[in-house]
């Protein structure tokens, strides 16, 4: 089976990668792959455009950073607790926004994210403009030292694989089926006896939890959490990654995330030109890859073979 062969190949590459490529770069890719997937769950599978998605990412970075710094909790617990806290925040945001659709939903999530930004700016534990600095990488299970980049890479890798597996399961679940139906035609779903907003709230809860995990990991990777992590810039970047890779495919946004992280890494040497090059890439994708990179490849080379 080619599928298992692919998985095996991926596993081997994932294990060898940190010895060939700078682990921080790899971990950044993994964080954004998870983050982009969480966004894809909303936009690609529920039809919900969340303009403030960075609030889950950034708040989780603070939470996990604070726990790593000021508590004795082991690193995996810090990740999990931050993710759960963001799931709770996502649920709350869902309660407020899920009855609305389209641009209204987008604006409400943007407004809430601005509010959260302001709260964290003023909160005593966030370090204000400086953010949280020198975040330690606490031991795994309280025993294993993961302070080296390579060791942490494997922690991040395992969490990312689990997160992607959960994402895959959600999309291919009875719930995921109804969610896609809501994306396609919400009124019809309601006329079939469902209450769409409940599904949207659950989708937002799950998505926020995944985004939270991404942010929590990011804090341990860079050992810093700042307001930038929940800025509109990051919300915008994640939209860009998703569209670049291809909406409505599972792998598209992951590929988009990896491409952008790599591109930014390459472009760092060009200083301000980086933005211009990024803009050009975005324009080119919009003009020539309407369905995103993966979407376009699929449309051209994949024969529609469904089960």
């Amino acid at each position: 089976m080619t599928r298992y062969a692919l998985f095996a190949l991926f596993a081997v590459l994932a294990v060898l990668a940190p010895f060939q490529i700078y682990p921080i770069l790899l971990m950044t890719i993994l964080c954004f792959v998870v983050f982009a997937s969480s966004f894809n769950l909303l936009l690609g599978y529920a039809g919900l455009l969340c303009f403030g998605h960075a609030m889950f990412f950034g708040t989780a970075a603070y939470l996990s950073g604070w726990m790593l710094k000021h508590t004795a909790l082991s690193i995996e617990l810090c990740f999990i607790l931050a993710a759960l806290a963001m799931a709770a925040l996502g649920w709350l945001v869902g309660l407020i926004s899920a009855r609305r659709g389209g641009i209204q939903f987008a604006m409400i999530t943007l407004a809430i994210s601005q509010f959260v930004y302001f709260l964290l700016l003023r909160a005593p534990f966030t370090g204000g403009e400086d953010g949280l600095q020198r975040i330690p990488r606490s031991a795994l299970f309280g025993v294993f030292d993961v302070s080296s980049n390579v060791a942490l890479y494997f922690v991040v890798l395992v969490f990312s694989v689990l997160a992607i597996a959960l994402f895959y399961r959600i999309v291919h679940s009875p719930f995921g089926e109804v969610l896609r139906a809501i994306r396609d035609n919400e009124d019809r779903v309601e006329s079939l006896g469902f209450q769409p907003e409940r599904f949207k709230i659950l989708a937002l809860t799950l998505s926020a939890g995944l985004a939270g995990l991404a942010g929590a990991m990011k804090a341990a990777v860079f050992q810093i959490a700042t307001l930038h992590d929940l800025s509109f810039h990051v919300s915008g970047t994640i939209i860009f990654m998703t569209l670049l890779g291809g909406l409505g495919t599972m792998t598209g946004p992951m590929v988009g995330a990896a491409l952008i992280v790599l591109l930014n890494d390459e472009l760092a040497q060009f200083g301000e030109w980086a933005l211009i090059i990024q803009g050009t890439v975005f324009l080119a994708v919009i003009l020539f890859f309407r369905k995103g990179v993966v979407g376009e490849i699929k449309a051209r080379f994949w024969k529609p073979a469904k089960s």
Binding site: R169, I170, S173, F175, F199, L202
Partner: peptide, 10 residues
């Protein structure tokens, strides 16, 4: 009553 089961397979 299966519609919220996001953890089950199809």
């Amino acid at each position: 009553g299966t519609a919220f089961r996001f953890w089950r397979s199809l």
